[in-house]
Simulated assay, not measured.
Amino acid sequence: MSLATAAAGTAPEVAAAVRSALESVFDAVAATRTDTADLLAKVAAEGRRPATVDLAALRPGLHLRLARNELVSGVGFVAAPGLLTDVPAWLEWWQSGSDGDVRPLLLDLDPEQSAYADYTHWDWFALPRDTGERAVAGPYVDYLCSDEYSLTLSAPVQMEGRFAGVAAADVYLRHFEAAVLPMLRRLPGPAHLVNARGRVTASADPAHLAGSLTKGPDFAAVLRRARPGRFRGLRLVPCRDIPLVLVISPR
């Protein structure tokens, strides 16, 4: 089901349509995760640690995912600090330019000079690392990659049973909102979407703007239970298997 064209009018239909669209982005994340895990396993079987040169083997797959998924604006693997032998930190990251060209993200990750050297506190890295689960982070201004208001979908990658980094993909918020807002507006009450931390990812409710926090409900618990619930008049509908909750306020 296409988010842009779905004629969804009920909460379960909207939640299912959101799931369908973002699952396609998570498919890109999963493919990157598989490619990276296979590559790291091959390096380990050779009795050595990986280096940045090894990650170049991921590039054909990353380019293909950017070309095939219109929601994905950037995709790649972000290494855990200390994983690679030749640099303290690294993003094997590729993104689409406004002209459609695919280009690498080039960052100065020198910890003595760069404000971006420690990316481990960002939700898109910390949530998969700490929970072992995939995550939706944001929206936030992505100063690291695009300077665009974005969502980042991510999943943990392991090497020999240990956390090695995250596979991730970016979605520009304007593209996500363009897809979901028409459906949110068809619901019987003001509606918005939040992630596990209660951060609003898209909203047709003027009381809950994108990027703000919805306080009160335990959205992580709603996602764990994977069934609809209520909290002080709010209707909470998890987007099955996607870490987002549809929140509908009473009129």
Rank of each mutant, 00 (worst) to 15 (best):
L234C: 10
A17T: 15
P238N: 09
A164S: 11
G132T: 02
R129Q: 06
A191P: 05
A196E: 07
A126E: 03
R232V: 07
I248M: 15
V18P: 03
L181Y: 01
A115Y: 08
Q158L: 13
P182M: 08
A37P: 03
L84C: 03
R185E: 15
G100F: 10
G74E: 07
L83M: 10
D110Y: 01
D27M: 06
L246N: 07
S24L: 12
R240N: 13
V136W: 04
V166D: 02
D27E: 14
G229E: 06
D110L: 04
I242G: 01
D123L: 09
A137V: 01
P128T: 02
E148P: 03
S20I: 07
P190N: 05
D170R: 12
D241P: 05
R251D: 13
A126K: 08
V53W: 05
G82V: 01
R230I: 04
L66V: 02
P188S: 15
A164K: 08
P188C: 04
S154D: 08
R235D: 12
R230A: 12
E148D: 15
T10A: 09
W94D: 05
K42G: 13
A191K: 03
L193R: 01
P190A: 09
C239P: 05
D38E: 12
D108A: 07
A220V: 00
V166A: 00
F231A: 11
R103E: 12
A221M: 13
G100T: 08
L91N: 01
R251M: 12
D108Y: 06
V247G: 11
A79D: 00
E133K: 13
G74Q: 10
A164N: 06
F26V: 00
A115T: 11
G74D: 10
W124N: 02
T34R: 01
V247L: 11
G97N: 09
P12V: 10
G47A: 05
A221L: 15
T131W: 01
L151C: 09
R232E: 14
V166T: 06
G189L: 05
V141Y: 13
V200I: 14
L193W: 05
A179S: 10
G97S: 07
L223M: 12
D130E: 14
C145Q: 13
R48H: 09
L105R: 07
L181G: 00
R186K: 10
R230Q: 15
S98F: 04
Q113Y: 10
Y140E: 08
H63R: 11
D241M: 07
E92Q: 11
V245R: 05
P188L: 08
A164H: 08
A51F: 02
